[in-house]
């Protein structure tokens, strides 16, 4: 049987995560097993390796390979205005609510990937006329994807999905207003992203670095097991002002976390929560 049939066993994955923890001080041991295993399998195929041990060997000996590893491990799939109905609720209820008591708004995109979510947010704020009142922080564990988010150039072939989403969101204009086509890429207008600061940050081991009115952590914790989801929720909770909002992915849930009672559900369909207790 070809090596693609060769299946990775849990013990091998344990060995890998232990090695990474010791050598690079990153903790992947509580990533959801089924997708973690598939990502590692994908990497073995990509680098034409037969065993996890060989992967460990490269990690151990090849300078700079670990960053590439993180980049391949993480799932960066994203879209502008992903779940258009969420963005509508954000525009119609959540942001107006925050702005009721503030004349500024601070937003954290935790696990921002290549930045489509940040572009969406900036467009929402711009169309509401409050972009200049926003401070946006965008973070991700994957350094190379952060660099992409910063560049904010997207393949034109991705723009079709983005445009469709924007239409469903019912934006004021058309998405084309916000980018110029250069070669085969859509280059997002720089002015739109002026208030965004980008940095590398690990939700698992990184520190709580600020407090926000609104935190988006969508489709990131689905890659974690329940133990880790719970632990990361504590961090997100600490990073919110009281009465601040937390948004998770449309298929994620907080109900089994031990501090679930410190939030109320604002919109169950769009997975918007409000912190009500410190």
């Amino acid at each position: 049987m070809s090596y693609t049939m060769g299946e990775i066993e849990i013990t091998e994955l344990r060995k890998l995560t232990t090695f990474i923890q010791e050598k690079f001080d990153y903790n992947f041991k509580d990533y959801a097993m089924s997708s973690f295993r598939r990502r590692i399998k994908r990497m073995l195929d990509l680098y034409k390796l037969q065993t996890v041990d060989e992967l460990i060997h490269i990690l151990n000996t090849k300078e700079g390979f670990f960053e590439e590893f993180v980049s391949e491990l993480t799932v960066n799939v994203t879209e502008m205005f992903r779940d258009p109905t969420f963005w509508r609720v954000l525009r119609e209820h959540i942001i107006p609510n925050i702005m009721l008591n503030h004349n500024k708004i601070s937003i954290w995109h935790a696990g921002c990937s290549s930045g489509e979510e940040i572009v969406s947010m900036s467009i929402v704020l711009d169309e509401m006329g409050i972009l200049d009142k926003a401070k946006i922080v965008a973070t991700d564990i994957d350094r190379s994807i952060i660099a992409k988010a910063k560049e904010a150039r997207y393949p034109l072939k991705h723009m079709e999905v983005n445009r469709k989403n924007y239409l469903r969101y019912q934006g004021k204009y058309s998405l084309e207003k916000y980018y110029t086509e250069v070669g085969s890429e859509a280059v997002i207008n720089k002015a739109l992203l002026e208030n965004v600061s980008y940095r590398k940050h690990d939700l698992v081991q990184g520190s709580v670095f600020s407090k926000f009115d609104l935190v988006l952590c969508r489709n990131v914790m689905i890659y974690f097991n329940q133990t880790l989801q719970n632990q990361v929720l504590h961090r997100l909770h600490e990073s919110l002002f009281k009465y601040g909002y937390l948004v998770i992915g449309s298929k994620e849930s907080l109900i089994w976390c031990d501090i679930a009672h410190k939030f109320i559900v604002v919109n169950n369909e769009e997975k918007i929560y409000k912190k009500i207790k410190d």
């Binding site: 997708s35 799932v75 799939v77 992915g249 298929k251």
Partner: peptide, 9 residues
Amino acid sequence: NSVSLNTEE
């Protein structure tokens, strides 16, 4: 004993 969802490629 749980189901997980993801948005891989």
